[in-house]
């Protein structure tokens, strides 16, 4: 028996979406014709580029928590860890379209890529222009020379924020696409897992992490990391993660960065701050300034014990877009 809050595991996605829409009705609404699409109350906005994302469930508050003003206009919701349908992506695109086209910003996974491709084909027949950006910020999923094969992880959140902000300035579809691409190109992420996650319908973990060990470089669905090694003190893990992401950043002293440290679902939040304490010091030691830090459960993996670190290099344009006002359930606010 799983110690989890479930009814019928097959209903968990519908119930999640239903509860989410009830809780955040001031910011989002359910698509009237598709129960797997959540739309911002501000969308569509005539003449403004729409921003869409989507992905499997189990990563809450991603993806639907980033629907709101100045971020994402509509999301397509899939089954647990499984891509939304092409129909759902297409309905999200239609709901976000204000006549200026739609940027679909999503992660590099086979199912999502295929369903977005199909959805783009469907809406093209209706005259909706679509531009895509595929996030690939997870440095441990492939070597630098195979960057196109890397998975997208928490850096997607910063891509959505930048893309949504650019759209809010009234920029054109190619400009929004370019800004979102620039944002994800500026992000490097790495994950560390200490305990696996369990899909509700399966009832037991589909991979293992032996007690006393950790998996460095783990993916958002438990994809194997680059190494399994003995669990070490938090400061050592923080140093290791920072070393991994900074190895692919070439930043001069004095540069600014944004840092996103996300729990994977079952990590105590205080431990995220324990890690962040060390990470911020490590960045300061490198002469870098943290312009904005996000620490919390921003992009999870069901009940995995673990964390992802994302460091985004900032220039004036990205800083300005990052600082623009927005509201979305996952970004809090009162």
């Amino acid at each position: 028996m799983m110690q989890r809050f479930l009814n019928d595991p097959d209903d968990v996605v519908d119930e999640t979406v239903s509860g989410f829409v009830k809780a955040h009705g001031a910011q989002v609404r359910l698509h009237p014709g598709n129960p797997r699409v959540v739309v911002s109350v501000d969308a569509p906005s005539a003449g403004r580029v729409g921003v869409v994302t989507g992905g499997g469930s189990g990563h809450e508050p991603a993806f639907l928590g980033y629907v709101g003003r100045g971020v994402v206009d509509a999301v397509a919701v899939g089954e647990i860890f499984s891509s939304p349908t092409a129909n759902s992506f297409a309905d999200a695109i239609r709901a976000a379209d204000g006549g200026a086209g739609v940027a679909v910003l999503f992660g590099n996974y086979a199912g999502d890529t295929m369903n977005v491709k199909l959805a783009t084909r469907m809406v093209a027949k209706e005259g909706i222009a679509v531009a895509t950006v595929i996030a690939n910020d997870d440095v441990s999923s492939a070597p630098p020379e195979e960057r196109d094969g890397r998975r997208g992880v928490a850096g997607e959140i910063l891509m959505w924020k930048i893309g949504g902000a650019k759209a809010a300035t009234g920029a054109s579809l190619p400009e929004v696409q370019a800004a979102a691409q620039k944002a994800i190109d500026a992000c490097r992420s790495v994950g560390v897992g200490l305990a696996p996650c369990t899909l509700p319908a399966v009832g037991q973990p589909n991979f293992t992490i032996a007690p006393g060990t950790m998996e460095v470089g783990i993916g958002h669905h438990g994809e194997p990391g680059m190494r399994i090694e003995p669990l070490r003190p938090a400061n050592d893990i923080a140093d290791d993660m920072l070393r991994i992401v900074m190895a692919e950043h070439d930043l001069p002293p004095g540069a600014s960065v944004a840092v996103l440290l996300s729990g994977l679902g079952a990590t105590p939040v205080n431990e995220l701050y324990v890690l962040y304490d060390r990470i911020e010091s490590g960045l300061a030691d490198r002469g870098l300034r943290v312009h904005r830090a996000l620490v919390g459960n921003y992009f999870t993996s069901l009940d995995m014990v673990g964390v992802t670190l994302t460091v985004m290099a900032l220039d004036a344009e990205l800083t300005g877009l990052l600082d623009m006002d927005c509201t979305a359930p996952a970004f809090g606010g009162w």
Partner: peptide
């Protein structure tokens, strides 16, 4: 398959 199944097999068998 394309419209209602999703994942990877929906689009692959759908196409």
């Amino acid at each position: 398959l394309m419209g209602e199944i999703g994942g990877s097999m929906g689009p692959l068998y759908g196409v």
